[in-house]
Amino acid sequence: MTYDMWIIVTGSLVGITCAMVGCFLVLRKMAMLADAISHTVLLGIVGGFLVSQSLDGPSLLIGAVVVGLLTALLVQVLSGKGVQADAAIGVVFTSLFAIGVILLSVFAGNIHLDVDHALMGEITFIPWDTVVWNGMELGPKAVWLLSFVFLVNLLIIFLLYKEFKISTFDPALAAAIGIPVLFIHYLQMGMLSITTVASFDSVGAILVVAMLIVPASAAYLLTDKLLAMLIISAGIGVFSAISGYYMATLLNVSISGAMATSTGIVFGLAFFFSPKHGLLAKKRAQQKLSMNGRG
């Protein structure tokens, strides 16, 4: 596979994996928690490195999951004590992220991990960091890691689709029929955490947030069915990765930034031209009601 194709495949895997998780976050009105966790997992990454003294292996994923769950738990605790949800997210987000930055600067300043890298990523280096087995190059490590996380997320959603759907749209009903709503919540936070850290090295936190929120938000405007929303958001993620790469090549700009911009363009089109929920469709419906009222 060519150098360009590896970058496109990596971006597409990020788009698909993030979009799948993002749909449930958008539907549950927890999109900003995704932004918080995508930054606070830096603390988990640094913690995993300090424990294992290695950037390889499962320690970074484990650390990210622990801190992601801790973020969700602290936000829920503060919200339960009367702090407004957005304020709770802001307090936890800034505090844990700041601790991660301090630890990174003090204890891990001489390794291939820094705040700029974590925020912006560097997808152009991905094709050169490969998995080698018996002298054979099997492709970039990022592609293998993202593929693994994608399959794990897909399997969880497939096995617990009914539980996810009911607890997303009607948590009270889910609790009444015995679905462990709190477990589902923290399971989704764990999925969000491993998805974020798997994408960190490739594209950085900025594009991760864009891929988590924007494709799902655009798909939300285009359909009223959960399964269709999952498929459409994944398609938007892939399209944004591909179009963003060629936009970046043409304009000689940041690849991650161009991919994030592509998601915004797609959302803008959906916002204006969605057949049912778009701005133009709503205006036409209002004009029709106005005419019928006059008649």
Rank of each mutant, 00 (worst) to 15 (best):
I213H: 02
A234F: 14
I89A: 02
L192R: 04
A108N: 10
I7N: 07
V209L: 07
I157M: 08
Y220L: 15
M229N: 12
L222N: 09
A118L: 15
G63Q: 08
L230K: 05
V67F: 08
N134Q: 13
M5R: 03
A205E: 10
G264Y: 04
G135E: 13
F164I: 07
C18L: 09
S147D: 02
I62P: 06
V208C: 13
F148P: 01
A19I: 12
L55Y: 00
S147W: 05
I265R: 00
F169C: 06
D86W: 02
I242K: 02
V197I: 15
P58M: 11
V253W: 03
G268V: 04
F271T: 15
L160D: 02
A85I: 12
G204T: 00
S256I: 05
V26M: 14
K165A: 14
A87L: 01
V14E: 04
L61E: 00
V203K: 09
S290I: 00
D56A: 15
M1A: 06
S202P: 13
P275K: 01
V41W: 01
E137C: 02
L145H: 01
I99G: 04
H277M: 06
M30T: 11
N134K: 11
S193F: 03
V266G: 00
A216E: 11
M189N: 09
G47D: 08
G244K: 03
I231N: 03
S167W: 13
L42I: 07
F272W: 14
A270V: 09
A241E: 02
L159E: 01
G278I: 12
I99W: 00
P58S: 12
I126R: 03
T223R: 00
H112Y: 07
L119C: 04
G268M: 07
T71F: 05
F125P: 00
V65Q: 08
I7S: 02
L154S: 11
V132S: 06
I206K: 00
S199Y: 01
A216Q: 08
G257P: 04
F49P: 08
T10M: 03
I177N: 08
L74C: 15
F125I: 08
F164N: 10
